[in-house]
Design a protein around this nucleic acid. Structure first.
Length: 478
DNA sequence: CTATGGCACGGATT
DNA sequence: AATCCGTGCCATAG
């Protein structure tokens, strides 16, 4: 570990400016980082972005055009060793977060963890004519993991020998079901549906609809001035609209905490739609190494423009100081970005290695880890870890997006144990009895604490829990 | 009288 | 230094 560290960190004088700036960058979430880079990029001519490539064999976006971290991985490494790398993905530049209101509507409807297709179908079954149900089912089974329909409608129409308009009608109905915008053909459509629904209950910026319709691409790439021109309003106004969209809408309907049971007092109440870190399983194999992508919100690599460095020699005398200054700032910035990235990679490497079980098997296997202990292991300051963790989210191999802070939960494993006990109880157990059972299983906690955990998980007190276990949802269809 | 939830305190964590 | 979390004590509901 130590050796690796020395090899990869540049041996250059590290100034306090480095440290402060790196720390600042570390604390930013992906969209915030995007903002910062963009503003730096537009104000400093010495900076440039070189377009990234995709790995020809595994298709991952690469920040380093020389070799792909997955395909060039030495074969003799243990499978416990995760593959961690920076992944340039501009499409994650906007942050999407459900706000309270929208989230509440989730709580009312989502009851049990179940498949997205089943869940949606259950909602709309009564609205559909019998003949349309196979079409709905067909659409739902074709959804990708974002909840979008990538299959052309016409294909489905042909398959069922019905007119295209009929399929469109079914799609329309599905789009207005719970993960709003689900089954849309593209993110744009999904956004429009959500906008439509939200506008019924409260005010939305008047131009939001047109902004999405005409400038979705521009919006995605934060090209506000261009968009402003199209819409005929000021750039500030456009930013306002973009902020509204980012906060209230979600172009990928299924990317929430899908399957997470939303309860009023769950500690991780916020659900995010865009991850800062994507964890997947190589080839989907249980024993394969984990692939950890750190999302980097521009489409390539940031570097100092070599032409600018060249041009400095022929700089006009009155500009030379300015240019020198630009060059210095650019170098510093690039270095800080690299350091930030390196810090996150290192952090995620150990974190993922430690919590592999949790990532693969779920909540019960979370190893209670504190930021402090990880800081000690990595030999960095605690605040470094705190900054890097706070406000960031990770997408697990099963598609759920969770706050990175969950990796440091001290009581999650006990809470899931508690859930299991209560789920299997034959008669409602009182908190005191639960304490005894937990003690027998090695968890020594106070009675009062059990009550708190119950509340967190949204489990009712014993006298309000009836014996109605094991009953699935009543036949609510029809 | 028992089971729970509210409040607040102290120690651990960030 | 600020915040979070487990716990004890006490009031209250059943």
């Amino acid at each position: 570990m130590l050796i690796r560290q020395i090899q990869s960190v540049e041996v250059r004088p590290i100034t306090t400016a480095h440290i402060t700036k790196t720390m600042f960058l570390l604390g930013l979430s992906t969209p915030e980082l995007h903002e910062t880079i963009q503003s730096e990029l537009s104000s400093n001519p010495a900076l440039e972005v070189i377009e990234g490539r995709f790995c020809p064999s595994c298709q991952k976006p690469l920040i380093d055009t020389l070799h792909c971290p997955i395909c060039s991985r030495p074969k003799n490494l243990s499978n416990d060793e995760p593959i961690v790398f920076i992944s340039p993905r501009e499409e994650y530049a906007i942050s999407y977060r459900i706000d309270e209101e929208v989230e509440n509507s989730f709580e009312e409807t989502s009851v049990e963890c179940e498949d997205l297709p089943v869940y949606v179908l259950r909602q709309v079954a009564s609205e559909l004519e019998k003949a349309d149900r196979p079409i709905a089912a067909h659409i739902l089974t074709c959804l990708d993991k974002d909840g979008l329909l990538r299959t052309p409608l016409i294909e489905i129409a042909l398959y069922h020998h019905v007119p295209l308009s009929r399929v469109e009608k079914v799609q329309r109905i599905l789009q207005y079901a719970d993960p709003l915008g689900v089954a849309s053909s593209d993110p744009k459509q999904a956004l429009l549906v959500q906008l439509d629904v939200i506008s019924q209950t409260r005010n939305v910026p008047p131009l939001a609809r047109r902004a999405i319709e005409e400038g979705w691409e521009l919006l995605l790439h934060h090209q506000y001035p261009e968009l402003a021109k199209i819409l005929g309003v000021s750039t500030a106004k456009v930013k306002e609209i973009a902020a509204f969209i980012g906060k209230n809408l979600n172009p990928y309907p299924a990317r929430a905490n899908w399957g997470e049971v939303h309860q009023p007092t769950t500690p991780y109440r916020e659900a995010y739609y865009t991850p800062d870190i994507i964890i997947s399983l190589l080839n989907g194999d249980e024993n394969a190494p984990l692939v950890v992508e750190i999302v980097f919100p521009i489409a390539g690599k940031l570097r100092v423009n070599p032409l600018f460095r060249e041009g400095l020699r022929e700089a006009p005398p009155q500009k030379i100081e300015q240019w020198q200054n630009d060059l210095e700032r650019a170098t510093l910035f690039v270095k800080c970005i690299q350091q930030r990235n390196h810090a996150i990679v290192r952090l995620m490497h150990t974190l993922v290695k430690r919590q592999r079980e949790f990532i693969l098997k779920g909540d019960a296997y979370l190893y209670p880890l504190t930021r402090a202990s990880l800081a000690a292991e990595l030999d960095v300051h605690e605040s470094t870890i705190s900054r890097a963790v706070s406000g960031k989210t990770a997408q697990l191999p099963n598609g759920k997006i969770i706050p990175l802070a969950k990796f440091f939960d001290r009581s999650l494993h006990i809470r899931t144990e508690l859930q299991k006990i209560i789920a299997n109880e034959s008669q409602p157990l009182t908190d005191l009895e639960l304490v005894e059972i937990l003690k027998a299983r090695g968890y020594n906690i106070a009675r009062r604490t059990v009550a708190k955990y119950r509340a967190m998980e949204g489990i009712l007190p014993a006298h309000l829990r009836s014996r109605m276990k094991h009953q699935k949802l009543p036949a609510s269809i029809e």
